[in-house]
Design a protein around this nucleic acid. Structure first.
Lengths: 145, 145
DNA sequence: TGCTAACCTTACGTTTACGTAAGAAAGAGC
DNA sequence: GCTCTTTCTTACGTAAACGTAAGGTTAGCA
């Protein structure tokens, strides 16, 4: 019943789809930002799924948009990883109470990211207001010649 | 007629007021992110004004909120520097046409910063929407038990 | 005028986040 | 089975952004 997504992408393709490089992907795996590609004998190739594309895209956004360090990304990614794990368990259990508990556990990780994003948006809006005010002062003086 | 702001702050105080360190300030001066403290004989102390506090705070925000590299900050800061220069000239000239030209030249730099800030806000809002949607899906499934 | 904290310059060290190179191996296509 | 591209591991290199340490100097104050 547990259907796994098809792992058909190779590292170069994943890199292309996410705007990264193979080296970056291996490095992220090495430091735990990305999980090791599953069921892989050493020396063999890494294979990825669509879900891995989404995941890496999210890492990149946390890195670039929020400026998180890879260490900080890793902490959040562990949460992501926990969510993935939760989802997997979720599809293997039929106990309704268990399902409820698992879903509830998934929420805080999303909330945390929302907090970070909204906090940053707020700071940027404050900066925006200041810039607009500055521009207005200059324009006013321009109209007054 | 040209009244200069009082330069009364020392490097340690400027650092404290901006959440930086003396080393950072000297480094920024070295690579041209901050202008060299004016009229200073080598070996003597750097002295700063309120305007320098504002300026450094802005550099820090561009660095932390937008994640600009110091090189990118420097390019924008040169614009800032140009603005400062413009303001200075502005107070020294009485020619109305000259004043007009100088004020007009000041605008694009503010606009450029606004573009950057608004672009970033937009990207973050997109991310926010995605996170909210994700949260909603989880919550819905929770209500359906 | 002597003391001391903060500052000066110079220079080497450190962390983060990968880049790059080398030699071997995998695996898709012919 | 052979070729050629891509991937593998290992390891050293690098750019950015400061930290830190050493030895000397400035200047506010008792």
């Amino acid at each position: 019943m547990t259907q796994t997504a098809p792992r058909t992408l190779r590292i170069g393709e994943l890199a292309e789809l996410t705007g990264t490089t193979p080296r970056t992907i291996r490095f992220y795996e090495e430091i735990g930002v990305l999980p090791a590609a599953e069921d892989r004998e050493p020396g063999k190739r890494r294979l990825y799924s669509e879900a891995d594309v989404e995941r890496l895209r999210e890492v990149v956004r946390l890195r670039d948009l929020l400026g998180l360090s890879l260490e900080e990304v890793r902490e959040l990614a562990e949460a992501e990883s926990a969510r993935a794990h939760i989802r997997r368990e979720f599809q293997e259990t039929d106990d309704p109470e268990e399902r409820h508990r698992l879903l509830e556990a998934a929420l805080p990780y999303i909330e945390r990211q929302l907090e970070l994003v909204r906090g940053r948006i707020g700071e940027l809006q404050k900066l925006e207001e200041e810039l607009v005010a500055r521009r207005k002062r200059v324009r006013t003086r321009l109209r007054e010649q």
